[in-house]
Design a protein around this nucleic acid. Structure first.
Lengths: 263, 263
DNA sequence: GATACAATTCCGAATAACGGAACAATCTAT
DNA sequence: ATAGATTGTTCCGTTATTCGGAATTGTATC
């Protein structure tokens, strides 16, 4: 909240303030905030907050139900996000990808969507090898930073975003706290260096998994693909060759997204 | 774009302009826009757009990769959305709900998440009746306005948001155009009046389905539950009693969200 | 029903955003 | 490869715009 309020030379300050307000409202989640709460959280004057809120409301970014005088996040923001075609196209484009991965690796391939602080599993394909680690079902969501896909996504976030996201994760996800911040930070560093995430250590013992992010044009990860198998079958050399397969497929998906996405 | 630019008395104009810019950038999807494209789309002067973009960038709302000079939507916006706990909690809270619905109705129950212009199926429970219409798998996404859940969500949107969303749907979803705008508008009106969505007409013939929205505290739908069965088993009276069941369960979920959501 | 607290509206003052113009960096066409 | 055109960025004086104190209306609390 403070960060957005440091008046910076050459910047549009009313915009910084508005952003700070939206931040506070968003942080309240489904509870909503009163105007006075916003003034306290931001340090802005009452009239200022009110004026900005009115504008934000007319833009659909915040919402104030007629009866109750609390502010909530409005529908305009999700609507904005929905303009990005990637999320829908990813599932389509990913299907053939999973087929190929499962075929080549003989292990189980997963397609995840980046959804807030989670990686949401939207598709899965089982390989031919009889021992199948099916820890994640379609529809399940795992916190970013745990598991190969979540790690890949988190590691691929722009540097300036990753910090805040990690903070949020540790504030709101017990699973992450349990694993420990230091471990996750190391995993991230390793993943960034290697270009793929290796979650073989942290998961259920005996199960190995690697993942790579799928990047949109802006360079921001919109999802990830991963493959999981029995650890004993996965020497280092094999992991690296699998990582190559995943990279190749991630690139193919990204290319398809760009082609179809151009409206 | 124009709408956000009409200078309205008592409103913070720089904010309207910033919103217009974000709108344009978001609309470009994964393609990104150049600064001059923004000036054309908004009618703002070059310097103005540049200054606002710089601020938006420092807020993380838009992003400009160092090499390419195009603007994309930044990570700060999704990050903001992720502060809303509802999406994650919904899946948890919904599981027991689906059990009860499948049990009571003997038919198949679905849990959908509101995701942009789609309803995303995240859980499903089959009832005891041997003929099961399994048109939707977990992980599938259906456009809002088609199917019981999507209709329920669309109908539950605040009045001011529904119009724009419907417009977007018809711009970007062939399935919606195929069904025809008039039909969907009627479905919506009926759903709003009845308090639940009845998709028995539009789907595969012989299959009936109804759905109700799950509302967050702000009154905005964050998902929906629905139940589908064989049409011949579903006389009007039965549908209404099922709608009651769904309403009861939707309320239970909403209550749980509120309880757990208070951070 | 009365009191305190919060939300909203008003309006004069001054700040902060605007935009024309000059400059720098890119792209395009020959 | 070079020149010309288009686009992106910075500067700075002007003035329209936002700001915020104070008064008013509305809403919770006792």
């Amino acid at each position: 909240m403070d960060q957005a309020l440091q008046p910076s030379r050459g910047d549009v300050n009313s915009l910084r303030r508005a952003a700070a307000i939206v931040q506070v409202i968003a942080a309240s989640g489904d509870t909503g905030v009163r105007l006075i709460d916003i003034t306290q959280a931001t340090g802005l004057r009452r009239a200022t907050v009110h004026r900005l809120c009115r504008t934000l409301q007319s833009l659909g970014w915040v919402r104030q139900p007629r009866d109750r005088q609390r502010y909530y996040l409005g529908g305009g923001l999700p609507l904005l996000m929905s303009l990005l075609p990637s999320r829908r196209l990813l599932a389509e484009a990913g299907s053939a990808t999973l087929d190929r991965i499962a075929e080549e690796t003989e292990d189980t391939a997963f397609l995840f969507l980046h959804d807030g602080l989670d990686a949401l599993c939207v598709d899965r394909r089982e390989g031919s090898y009889p021992v199948k680690p099916l820890l994640v079902d379609i529809g399940d969501r795992r916190p970013l930073g745990l598991g190969a896909a979540g790690l890949a996504i988190l590691a691929a976030l722009p540097d300036e975003d990753r910090g805040p996201v990690v903070d949020l994760l540790f504030n709101s996800r017990e699973e992450c706290r349990n694993r420990g911040r230091a471990k996750i930070e190391t995993d991230l560093a390793v993943a960034r260096r290697a270009g793929y995430a290796d979650a073989s250590a942290g998961l259920v013992s005996g199960v190995a998994g690697i993942g790579v992010p799928i990047l949109g044009r802006a360079g921001i990860p919109i999802g990830a693909i991963s493959v999981a198998g029995v650890e004993s079958r996965w020497p280092q050399r094999r992991r690296e060759s699998f990582a190559d397969v995943l990279h190749r497929e991630a690139y193919r998906i990204a290319k398809r997204l760009v082609e179809n996405g151009a409206a």
